[in-house]
Design a protein around this nucleic acid. Sequence first.
DNA 1: ATGAAAGCGCTAACAG
DNA 2: CTGTTAGCGCTTTCAT
Lengths: 330, 330
Amino acid sequence: MSVTIKDIAKSLNISYSSVSRALNDKPGVSQETKNRVIEQAKRMGYQPNDMARGLVKKQSHTIGVIIPDIANSFFGEVTEGIIEAANINGYTIFLCITNWDIDIERKYLKTLQEKQVDGIILKTAKDNYESKYKDIITVPYIILEGRSIYDINLVEVNNKRGAYIGTKYLLERGYKSIAFAGGSKDSHTNMQRVKGYISALEESSIKVDKDLILFNDFTTKGGYDLAEKLLNNRKKIDAIFAGNDVMALGVLDYATSHGYSIPDELGVLGFDDIFYAELPQIQLTTIYQPKYELGRYALEILLQEIKDKENAINKHIILEPRLVVRNTTK
Amino acid sequence: MSVTIKDIAKSLNISYSSVSRALNDKPGVSQETKNRVIEQAKRMGYQPNDMARGLVKKQSHTIGVIIPDIANSFFGEVTEGIIEAANINGYTIFLCITNWDIDIERKYLKTLQEKQVDGIILKTAKDNYESKYKDIITVPYIILEGRSIYDINLVEVNNKRGAYIGTKYLLERGYKSIAFAGGSKDSHTNMQRVKGYISALEESSIKVDKDLILFNDFTTKGGYDLAEKLLNNRKKIDAIFAGNDVMALGVLDYATSHGYSIPDELGVLGFDDIFYAELPQIQLTTIYQPKYELGRYALEILLQEIKDKENAINKHIILEPRLVVRNTTK
DNA sequence: ATGAAAGCGCTAACAG
DNA sequence: CTGTTAGCGCTTTCAT
């Protein structure tokens, strides 16, 4: 059905290795036959078969990407960074979504390797699984935003510093009693943010009150519920640092619908700077993460390792976050 | 380096065709050797090579998906539907992002076919290019949300009806002078929405005023600028139907920051029902599109054609939209 | 039930 | 410069 180099060799009465050489711009063909081959290939509608090529060259120019959720705009932007960088480098992406399910994740890991991907970019559904994958993953790979282990490549944002900067800022603006409405306790990222928050308080000699540090899902509802708990505490709270922007939205929802005036009575700070944080109706003060760059670096580091697997050293890239001041803080 | 069926055949002193049979659960092997093979495969850490398999079976169990933008949550959700359906059916997705660039789109089309995808799901950057692809695309494919041509598979939402329902609703709620702040004139989808808007007006014997139908980019800024134009018209406008939710956000932004009270003085209606339309701070009345289903159907229709290429008939799936009433209309 | 062998489409030695 | 050949890892047909 589809035309192969053999077909075009036959039609030109030359050997098919010459065709291969001509098509791949390899030395060893006269300019003349080269031209004839190229023209004939076009005329016959020849399309190279990358599987056959990959089989002999042992590389697919394909990267597997495993993330928990694509509808979440944070991962959406990271993925965009990955894909664009891949495109520039002539790689194509297999995208896999785990829905935070560790079994699906493991299945994808297997499938991707059977498909002969040249490498894998992985955001685990559970950070503590990373180390377990060392034997399972036999191709170069890199972890996106996870626990840092010295012998695994990693790209992440400096979460601790981000939370430190944010807390510091709230303090400067005069907020006295700052709570932390965090996400999942299993999330390494999240716990780093807690550490940053604590270190800022300690630096200002403020006693850390464990009752003001709560955890819940990384969702809008998670934020809403924590706000309810925190604001109905007997302690007076004048600011809430949310585990991420989506949670901050929930905090905002509870606070405004229960009569708290923002930012004076209550300051709210998020983390991520997702797209809708800057909507005029929201204007959330937050910690910006370089999402696109996160993706781009992940791919580029991975490519480096793929290209020089022999003497590759493990890399640990840390991108710095930034405070973005909007209207939910005074 | 990696272990093949030959290796495990050698280690067991049997032919490698037997190994293949055992591993693939094919008849022609005794239960005993089968067990031995499977066990040995596990012990040696055997991973099948899908490229080699694909080469002989002439199928990759891989689908190419080409969309303009993944950070846009509309496409994000559609993609999620595609990927989950693919996962269920044992297919993996090559995701390609065109950034609305027709040249990148064409390049991806080529790459995907060289990679031997079994089929392609395509949302074109420019709707009028669909027909030009008939010769270029040699595998089964399906268009997502585009112009409808009888001999090409298509999955779309009934945009005309969606706009009709929306306009009808605005009329019922007492709005008298409704403008349409549309997206790109090149977008077939967009023009269908205009048609629905017009048909609702005509049905109510309202004269269609061409000055109230404007076009711009499908972006927040696009909506903002159109709102400015429309509201500074000499005509009194009391409702704006935006081309999509992102534009509606822009309309909302302009209107509120210029003192229009919503929904009484000005009603605003969107299209899509993207995630943040329902945020408490936004509460946008809009036309819901079944995005996830759109993706799921696209994949399933495509799979049908792949599986029965011979006598496949072209399909044209139209999903119905739904009005979602929130707070930007009275 | 098992093995031998051909071949998927291609690249890369090796001869000539 | 060109052709012949082997082989990537696998499935499948044909003998045995």
